[in-house]
Amino acid sequence: MSDQIGQSYRNYSEEKIKKFPFYLKLNHNLSLLFFDLNEISYDEFWEIIDNPNIQIPQKNYVIIDRYDDRLPMYELNHNPFTPELNSIIEEKYHLVEKYSKTQKDFKTDIFEYINSKTPKTVVLYLIDGLSYIDVANLDIDKVFKKITPVFVNGKTNTINGFKNIIYGYDDILIAKSLYYLGYDVYGLTYWNRAKNKTTDELFKYIPENNIFTHEMDLKNIIENNPYKKKYIQIYRMGLDEDAHKIRTTNEKLINDKINEIFENIKKLVEFLGRINESFIIYVISDHGIKWDFEKNYGKGAHGGISFEECFVPLIIIEG
């Protein structure tokens, strides 16, 4: 892919490239970090050009936000969300964060949608340990085909990842914010709050009587309250337990586990679809896992800086 950009350079004289940028179409802005390119906004560039007292720095600038016919246009068909990202992620960590949708952005996206659509049921499905790449490479049901890579702000561990998601930038729990918008708040988790610090942190604003351990209890609440707005927060184990405890795992076992998780989510989608009310389900993970199938021990790990650990999947299902 760098040869493709290089060819584009060669098609445009070296002298002009040093003085002027070109317009560039990208699949994702993160691709800029793989090449010797510097982004400049359309307005900023033409303001500099139109002002004779300002000299543009000697850099390989590209404009990606607006286009016209005053500069040459090139397209770059590049997917930045592959293990190739490991070659730059540590060196350019904060730039990777800048160009990505992040866990902390997630809460803002939720409330923009809710304020415009006001769905009757909002489900946040939290999965402990699931990489974007593991899901993106899997042949899963078409219900889940639209998968967005989301960057983990900071440490790639469970408590930090989930706090990024449910607190966002304003440090107010999603459950609390939705309660003040008129939503009844409920939870579903395997783990007792008193015995699990993470569960207690994630569900602290949800009343104890509204937290269930069995899906049927939650389904009864949904069916028996058809006219009320409901927020449901579900906390499920993903692949984190396998990474820590199981030392003989392989790609097939991992894929089987992911399929099992999504089969469970599909049943929830089908259940909500049978109820005559609007809903939206957000599926997201706290962190990814870096697998090492070449070793007998330490098969899966998280807590470091890698594409596999830092990018988790976001799937949104509307009904």
Rank of each mutant, 00 (worst) to 15 (best):
R70T: 11
H28Q: 08
N296R: 04
L30M: 14
I280S: 09
P21C: 10
K142I: 11
T108S: 09
D242M: 15
D217W: 11
P52V: 12
I165N: 04
E90I: 07
I49C: 00
K257N: 12
W191K: 13
I64M: 10
G300I: 11
K155G: 00
H78F: 15
S131K: 03
R70V: 03
I140C: 05
E223I: 12
L130D: 04
S8G: 01
T248W: 08
S2V: 10
K197Q: 09
L218S: 03
Q55E: 14
D240P: 04
N53I: 01
T82H: 08
T248A: 10
K101G: 00
P80Y: 08
S177P: 09
I254N: 09
R236D: 09
N53L: 12
I315N: 05
F20I: 00
I317Y: 05
V135Y: 02
L272A: 04
E270A: 12
E91N: 12
F34V: 10
E241F: 15
I234H: 01
L272Q: 05
K204D: 15
Y231C: 12
L33I: 02
Y282L: 06
L71V: 11
Q7Y: 12
Y186I: 03
L268M: 15
N137P: 05
K98Q: 13
G238Y: 04
K228W: 02
F81V: 04
N79H: 06
L130Q: 03
G300D: 07
E15M: 04
L239F: 02
K120N: 12
T108F: 07
T156W: 03
I56L: 15
T82Y: 07
L239T: 03
H94K: 14
N209P: 00
E201P: 01
